[in-house]
Amino acid sequence: MTTTETALIELHQVRAGYDEVEVLHGIDLSIPVGQVLAVLGPNGAGKSTLLRVLAGLHPPTSGDLVIGGNVMTGADPTALALRGLCLIPEGRGVFPNLTVAENLWLLTNRGATRRDVEQAAFHAFPVLRERRNQLAGSMSGGEQQMLAMARAIATDPALLLVDELSMGLAPRVVSQLFESVARIGESGVTIVVVEQFVQTVLGVADRAVAVVGGRIVLDGSPTEIAPELHSAYFAGNPDQEDDR
């Protein structure tokens, strides 16, 4: 992916859904290089779907996914992954039946050595070193999420997509995880973070959008949109047209 273009990744009028139900009703989004974007919204609004579309895991029913100026709609997610797109999915992106060391070993496919990967991961999350030979599935939720984040740290991605990082975790762990997100952001990586818990992520993000009912209803810097979030979540927008 080239980094000379201003927009690293864009969605043009993307519609997406499952079977007969459409979830995203025409999303336009443009994310510049190096930006940390927070995607907020209530459950069922389509945030995760948005992220999966960005990762190439979910083909849109219409519209385009543009990465680095190239139209990548329908691209193979494996290829995208190998070119530096890193998705940390919802629900602990780890392999539960592999050990921590084995999970990390899988991250060497982009050229890093095993030792480099482990060093980076254990430096960021020292607790993982103690769990090196433990099955990932037997660790606590927070530790699993740290292991998942280690992917982000150790593989030097160009684009990092994080889905519901804080789900089910204690506040202390959450803040530790978001610290690492911030650090990654500072190193120039473009990040898209999907979150339900607004306060934690607003401190980390450069920009935030709110997705309600499959559409982007708010878009601006965190300070700009924070006051309007409440009403956006709960009231919907009563005077819009029925398009069916």
Partner: peptide, 17 residues
């Protein structure tokens, strides 16, 4: 290890390249 990972979680394995 990759073979075992694919069985565990195919999608995640895809994401891992």
């Amino acid at each position: 290890v990759e073979m075992r990972a694919t069985v565990d979680d195919r999608t995640l394995a895809t994401l891992n390249g």
